[in-house]
Simulated assay, not measured.
Amino acid sequence: MRKILTTSLVLLTVGGFVMGCQSVGKSTSYNHESSYEANRIEEIKINNESWDIEFKRSDSPNITIACEGKRQNNKSDPVTIDQEGRKIVVTQKDQGGAMAGFTFGKKGTIYISIPDQGVDTITLNNDADDIKMKDVSALNIAFTNHSGYETIEGLSADKGEFTSKDGELKLKNSSLNELTVTSGSGGSYLNGVTSPEMNITSTAGEVTVKEIDEGKRLCVETESGDITVSYITPPTSLNLAASSNSSDISIGLNGFKESQRTENAVEGTIGDAAQTLELVSRSGIIVVK
């Protein structure tokens, strides 16, 4: 009798769990679009839990925010858009309580279209899922990312700050007066980026900076990742210092004159050494060409 009762309770529990999953799994489509006059907006702030985010340039004078995805709770919207004075705040929160994590596949995408110099500041706090940006211009860009992939191309900004814990950053064909990248375990891949001031730090991720012009200052520091730097045209005035405990440092620049070389460090100059390149890796390989 006790065995029959125990078995019944187990079946009831499993049945209830399955029914609960089925209930949570039910979703309906969610679509919303809002438009704002760009000359009335100074900042866009996005707080995102698990939807994809896509920024793009718009030929319209208006800022448009469109949402396409799934609604898990018919009593509330998965995305809210509020205007607070001259700031737009976009908030995406997962629905379904403790069972929200059982939702499979993409939950939705937020599309943000911005005219040239349409806003001063774009701020994004992203927990998961991917970020894309193409041909957007703004004075200030500040992205904080937990685990999503960031793919950014054609960005024009005065100041850009990209902070990521586990996600990967790809920044291509962009121009910034000042660029700061801080990464945990994700890789940082820059290609064709123009910036007089670049500071890149990483705990464990690889750092690759390709096809760059000679800038005032480029500093890269990693705990364990490899570092690769390549110039689109050979630098003519550079002060270079590279160090790694791996003892694997390769400098292939025309006109480079070593002033000091040890097992773990290389220093030298090109021309009158007006620009600075500093590379530090605790255990990774360093290549400059």
Rank of each mutant, 00 (worst) to 15 (best):
R2G: 11
K3G: 13
I4D: 11
L12T: 14
C21L: 15
Q22W: 09
Q22A: 15
Y30C: 10
S34N: 12
S35W: 05
E42T: 14
N48P: 02
S50E: 04
W51P: 03
C67W: 00
E68I: 11
E68W: 01
G69H: 01
K70N: 09
Q72P: 03
N73R: 04
T80W: 01
Q83P: 01
E84V: 12
E84P: 03
R86C: 11
K87T: 12
K87H: 04
I88K: 02
T91I: 08
A100P: 00
A100Y: 00
G105M: 11
Y111A: 13
Y111I: 15
S113P: 02
Q117H: 13
D127R: 10
A128C: 10
I131Q: 03
V136W: 01
V136Q: 00
S137W: 04
N145K: 01
S147G: 05
G148C: 06
G148A: 06
D158Q: 13
G160T: 06
F162L: 13
E168T: 14
L169F: 02
L171D: 03
S175D: 08
S175R: 06
E178C: 08
T180E: 04
T180W: 01
G192I: 01
E197D: 07
S202E: 07
A204C: 08
V207I: 09
V207Q: 07
K210R: 12
E211L: 05
K216D: 10
R217N: 15
E221P: 02
E223A: 13
T228Q: 13
L238C: 05
N239R: 14
S244H: 03
S247N: 14
I249E: 09
G255F: 00
E258R: 12
S259I: 08
S259Q: 12
Q260T: 08
T269S: 09
G284W: 00
